[in-house]
Design a protein around this nucleic acid. Sequence first.
DNA 1: GCAGAAGCTATTTTCGAAAATATGTCCTAT
DNA 2: ATAGGACATATTTTCGAAAATAGCTTCTGC
Lengths: 233, 233
Amino acid sequence: MTASAVKSRKEFGKTLAVDITHRLRQDIVACRLKPGEPLKFDALKLAFGASFTTLREALTSLTADGLVVAEEQRGFRVAPVTSDDLIDITETRTLIEIELLSRSIANGGDDWEIAVMSTLHRLGRIEERLPGNHVENPEWQIAHRQFHEALVSCGRSPTLLGIRASLFERAERYRNLSAMFRPQPRDKVGEHRAIMQAAIARDTALATSLIDRHIRSTSDNVVKYASHLLTES
Amino acid sequence: MTASAVKSRKEFGKTLAVDITHRLRQDIVACRLKPGEPLKFDALKLAFGASFTTLREALTSLTADGLVVAEEQRGFRVAPVTSDDLIDITETRTLIEIELLSRSIANGGDDWEIAVMSTLHRLGRIEERLPGNHVENPEWQIAHRQFHEALVSCGRSPTLLGIRASLFERAERYRNLSAMFRPQPRDKVGEHRAIMQAAIARDTALATSLIDRHIRSTSDNVVKYASHLLTES
DNA sequence: GCAGAAGCTATTTTCGAAAATATGTCCTAT
DNA sequence: ATAGGACATATTTTCGAAAATAGCTTCTGC
């Protein structure tokens, strides 16, 4: 267990349990906690400086997110990574992302266009500064997430947006897994720009088809470079 | 607070926390715990016979399901019912239910057809026995849920099926709310049979259009008979 | 009369000990 | 040798007390 060391308390939320949930989530998504790894309370206590109860609450939250699995009376483990799970996430994401992007294109106004363009711009600037493998760079990850969030931000469905956010995180874990072994990052700049342009142009058919391919090709890349890490099938 | 009295321990799961999660969920879906009602630990302790910690874990789980809302440092409340939320759930359900039904029609074999027909048959028998308002009857509720589950059971996506199950529960709470005030139950028998027939006939377009209307009309009925209970807008 | 502080009460949140359960080891009988 | 049982250890799960926080009431100064 090489979890994040004890940082400043209550970085993310008002309560310790919420804070630890976020930190555990980050550690799992970043694969600092390895897929399938048992999450034992003694070790977590040491790493996060919280009691059984608080940790238990955090793990229960993450179980709902699909990042942790619980076996009753036998504790918690980091959710394993499998090709079936990756396929499942990818298919579900395309369905939901396409729906939300369509709605955003229909509903978005000036502010939406500005948000999409500016988040993409920021992402581009970060990529210029770091020509290497930026997927491991947290700054890039945040900007990347914010661009995709901006695209769907006018979907007007809290439920669907919540599901989308959760799936994005589960997928991000697989991306991080593959990034460890990918020699050079594939060029997403062009893909992102094309999606932005189609969205701003209100070309729903093109934009959704591009986002569909974007999600699928990301998933294919994971299979290509990290298949040896995926258990099952 | 008129929650379910302390029943036999560990009815649903191996651990007490999981058990209490299920019981609390049932109480919320059945509206025995009213929407918006504060869930105070002293009262819950009395009603469920568990400690702070265990209750906290259960409430955290239900927060992820959208049946409970948490305000940090200010405790938990039963999720309020609002027209916006009902619309959101309904729209999201149609999207996901249509997708899963299409996939089931494409993938389902003999076993699937048998499951769909037999669950509908059971539902019909229960409705015959109880010509009144059967929505309040737990036996009917289980059979109704099992019929709809059977329809989508070959959707082959654990993630999507999990989301569907969660949304079904959230919608069920609204149905129960409206059932309290609806004078006579509308006749769902015909609707259910038509959906079953279209599904078995592998008429995807018809089946999905029927399920879409089925979900929307259920939602409309809630608005019709329980609008005075919905806060916001 | 009222704003704001200070203290008191109600409630949530966190903790570490104790109970319950699972897992591993060693012994015995066949 | 091996299956099965009994003990010992490791780990999770649950509990109630203690700490932290929010909300309410009262008091004071203007």
